[in-house]
């Protein structure tokens, strides 16, 4: 058995890393989409930095993605156990600090952000009670956040939706507040796939540096492997944060 290197393929590191940004991708026990999120970060031109849930060093990353999966099996409530990870303490502090670390929570990551109270509301089981995997049409409601500034306001995008506990719920006051403050980042277009209140697919915090959504932009970044084997609408999340970082650092 030999172990020769592939003959074809470019093994050099991409040299076009916009702003040389370092974006952390957190892995909890049971995280599934961490490699996908890292790939999306690289596709956008940044460096992906692995962050382990039990560590306390943020490694000077410029932004953080909390990817999807079933951390701790989602056994108690989705995100309920991960929220107490040492790394989450650091992320919550950094997100709330002066520096306003950009944080993106996708699916289980969104659930962890609501359990951590970085974002309001919570997720319960889909109204139809089943896991659902589909190509999902979304409307960008707020393009003023760290993670959505590359989209047009009102732009419709297709990315992947796949979850069991995707029904966004919050009390009426919170929902009114989110709408009044333009903090609904994405809504579902057409059929509401999980019964989310007011068809909300994703929201942001007040400052716009923390965004959480149920669908998966990191699965729509490469032609041939995304929605309908073609879509790349999710890549803009990851280029948006680089734009934000460049602007923010000036």
């Amino acid at each position: 058995m030999s172990t020769e290197l592939p003959l074809i393929g470019d093994y050099s590191t991409p040299t076009t890393q916009l702003s040389g940004a370092r974006i952390g991708v957190v892995t909890f026990p049971g995280t599934l989409d961490d490699r996908d999120a890292a790939r999306a970060v690289r596709a956008a031109g940044a460096e992906a930095v692995s962050l382990w849930h039990a560590d306390t060093d943020l490694q000077d990353v410029d932004a953080v993605v909390i990817p999807g999966g079933f951390s701790y099996g989602d056994y108690l409530r989705a995100g309920a156990i991960s929220r107490f990870a040492p790394m989450m303490d650091k992320i919550v502090d950094a997100a709330n600090s002066e520096a306003k670390l950009p944080v993106l929570g996708i699916c289980n990551g969104f659930q962890i952000l609501t359990e951590s109270h970085l974002l309001p509301g919570s997720m319960i089981k889909n109204d139809h009670l089943k896991f659902l995997c589909r190509d999902q049409l979304l409307r960008v409601e707020n393009n003023q956040t760290a993670w959505t500034n590359g989209y047009e306001a009102g732009q419709e995008i297709t990315i992947v939706l796949k979850n069991q506990d995707g029904q966004y719920v919050a009390d009426e006051k919170t929902l009114d507040m989110l709408e009044a403050e333009n903090r609904v980042a994405f809504s579902y277009v057409g059929w509401n796939p999980n019964g989310s209140r007011r068809s909300i697919a994703g929201i942001s915090n007040e400052a716009g540096n923390v965004v959480g959504l149920m669908p998966h932009p990191e699965h729509a970044i490469e032609a041939g492997f995304g929605p309908d084997h073609r879509g790349t609408d999710g890549l803009t999340f990851f280029t948006s944060v680089l734009t934000h970082l460049v602007g923010g650092k000036k």
Partner: peptide
């Protein structure tokens, strides 16, 4: 009971 097992694992950490 996988659920109970996961919760039991988290309790001491807190």
């Amino acid at each position: 009971d996988p659920q109970g097992k996961a919760i039991a694992g988290a309790l001491p950490r807190l």
